[in-house]
Computed example of a mutant assay.
Amino acid sequence: MRGQVLGVDQRTGEGLVAGDDGRRYRFTPEDWAQRGEPAIGLQVDFEAEGDRALSVFPMPSARGVATAPPPPASREPVTDRNKIVAAVLAFFLGTLGIHRFYLGRTGSGIVMLVMTITVVGMLVTAPWAFIDMIRYLVMPDREFAARYARR
């Protein structure tokens, strides 16, 4: 039978259900067959025995029953950074790590900036910046947005 929870005693957990047949049925915490607690107004399904509601289950579409949030993968990643701008910065100012600062990668930007002071460091940061530029240009927009989204 189906019905609606009319009330629940918070101390004892005992409650009252109004059945679709117009009668009222009592239930105890042992009769509640679901995790969590019954709530007033919750639509339920139960077995009636005399004036008792046994095996009381909340209805799946009942209000008050928690539903799972949509998976995070269904949301489109959003970023205020542009991969073309990042690639241009990497090409022209890449040895200084400016493109890394633009993308929020401050740690590696500082490393590139400090390494550029020496000639050997410049020989390392120049190819590093060129590879970064190529990566930004070939990376799909969705992956770029997910990787470089502001946190």
Rank of each mutant, 00 (worst) to 15 (best):
M1H: 08
L6P: 01
V8N: 09
R11H: 06
G13S: 03
G15Y: 05
V17D: 03
D21M: 06
R24A: 07
R24N: 14
R26W: 10
R26K: 12
F27G: 09
D31C: 05
Q34H: 15
Q34E: 15
G36Y: 04
G36V: 10
G36K: 07
L42Y: 01
E49W: 10
G50R: 12
R52W: 14
L54A: 10
S55C: 00
V56M: 03
F57K: 07
A62K: 06
R63G: 06
G64M: 07
A66Q: 11
A66H: 02
A66W: 01
T67L: 11
P69N: 10
P70N: 05
P71I: 02
P72V: 14
A73P: 00
S74V: 13
P77E: 08
T79V: 07
T79F: 02
V85D: 05
A86T: 07
G94C: 07
T95E: 04
L96N: 01
G97V: 08
L103A: 08
G109M: 11
I117C: 04
I117A: 14
I117R: 04
M122L: 15
L123C: 13
A126P: 00
P127G: 05
F130K: 02
F130C: 11
D132I: 05
I134G: 04
I134F: 12
I134C: 10
R135F: 13
L137F: 06
V138C: 06
V138G: 05
V138E: 10
D141L: 05
R142P: 01
R142I: 11
E143P: 01
E143N: 08
E143S: 13
A146G: 12
A146F: 06
A149T: 10
R150Y: 03
R151P: 01
